[in-house]
Design a protein around this nucleic acid. Sequence first.
DNA 1: CTATGTGAATTTATTCACAGCA
DNA 2: TGCTGTGAATAAATTCACATAG
Lengths: 207, 207
Amino acid sequence: MKYRKIPNETVRRLPVYLRGLAQLSQQGVFSVSSSKLADFVNINAWQIRKDFSYFGDFGTRGVGYSIERLSKQIKKILRLDTLHKAAVIGAGNLGSAVLAYPGFRTYGFDIAAAFDSDPEKIGKNINNIVVEDVSRLNALRKRQVDIAIIAVPEKAAQQVTDSLVRAGIKGILNFSPKRISVPKKVKVITIDIASDLARLPYYIPSG
Amino acid sequence: MKYRKIPNETVRRLPVYLRGLAQLSQQGVFSVSSSKLADFVNINAWQIRKDFSYFGDFGTRGVGYSIERLSKQIKKILRLDTLHKAAVIGAGNLGSAVLAYPGFRTYGFDIAAAFDSDPEKIGKNINNIVVEDVSRLNALRKRQVDIAIIAVPEKAAQQVTDSLVRAGIKGILNFSPKRISVPKKVKVITIDIASDLARLPYYIPSG
DNA sequence: CTATGTGAATTTATTCACAGCA
DNA sequence: TGCTGTGAATAAATTCACATAG
C-alpha cells in the first residue's frame, strides 16, 4: 500500500462498515470476505476493498478479513478508540430524541450533558441526564466534552455555536438547517432533515 | 441550454437553494445574483449557476435571478409544486420530534398521519395528529399518502417497510440505520444519525 | 483455487475562464 | 459594465480486471 489522499466518501462509509462488523460479530462470526460484507451493508465488494486499501492491508488473501482486527483498525482510523464525550444543546423534541437515541452507543460515544434555555426544561431529567442552563456551556471544556449536537431552533443556532466554540468544542453535529459559521479548526457535519425529505418527490414518478 | 444528465449532487443542493430563496423573499428581496445567493447558502456562485443551467435559463444577464420565478422553477423540478402527504411510522422520541418538526412546512409537505404498534401510544394526540395502529397502514393508499418517514426501532424497520410498499408508498425517508430492501420503483433516502456523528472524531485533531 | 489489493479506465462532479446578452 | 450560462480543464470517486499472496 502506498499513500493516497483518503476520499471523503470513504470516510463516510467507514462507520457503516463498523456497524456491519459489529452485527456480524454478534452473530458469532469471526471472519468475513469483502463480498459477504458487501451483501450485508449493501456496498459493492470492490468499493469495500478499495476503501480499506487506503489504510493498509487488513485482510488475508484467499480468506478474508478478521472481524475483530478490522473493527479495531477502523475505530482507530475514525479515532473512536478513545472516548468522546458529547453534549446535546436543545432539549426539545429533537434534542430529547437524540438523548434517548440508542445508536450512539455502538460507536462508543458518551452523551454526557444536555442544555436548554427554557426554565421549564432546565432541571428536567431526560434519559438519566439532567438538563442544565445553556449559560453554563462554558463549563464543557473542563468537563472534557469535545463534541456537541445542536438541536435548537434555527434562530438560536449561531449564538449557541459561538458559545460552543468558546467552550472549546471541536466537532458539531448540526440539526439546524441554518448555515452556522465556525473557525476552520472546528468541524461541522449538518443533518438537514427537511432537505432530505424535499428531494424524495424528485425521484418519485409523477402521476 | 442542452440536455445533460442531472448530477445527484445538484438535486441534493436544490432544496437548500429553495430554502435560501424563501428566506430572502421573507426579507422583502425580489431579485438575487448567484454570488449573493452563494454567500447566503454557503455554496460557490459558479456551482449555483452550473446547477441551474442543467434545467434552463432562469436568470437575466447583468441582473440576476427573480426569486419568485426561480423558486417556482425549483419547486417544479423537485415536484414540490404538487402537495405531498407523508406519514410518520413510529411515535417514539424520534417520531414525535419529526411530527413536531417545523421544517417540513417550508417545502409544502403535509404530515398527515402517524402510526405505532404500542397500545400505549395509539390514540395519543401528538401535534394535532392522532396516532393510529400500525396494522392500518394499508389504508394509506386510499388516503393518498405517498411518502413515509420511518422512525421505528431497527428490528421493526424491514417489516414496516414491506407494509408501506404494499400500501403503495413511493418514497421513504428512513431514520433506521438498518439497510431496508424495497422494490426499485420505491426511492429510499436514509438519514443515519449515528454514522454522521461517528465520523466527526476523524476530523478532530488528536491531542 | 479463493479472495485481496491496486493500477488503469471510466464515470461523475467541481472549478475555471470567458463569451455573450441585458 | 455586470452577471449569466457553459464549454473545457481539472479533480474526485467509482468501477474494472487481474496480478499476487495464502
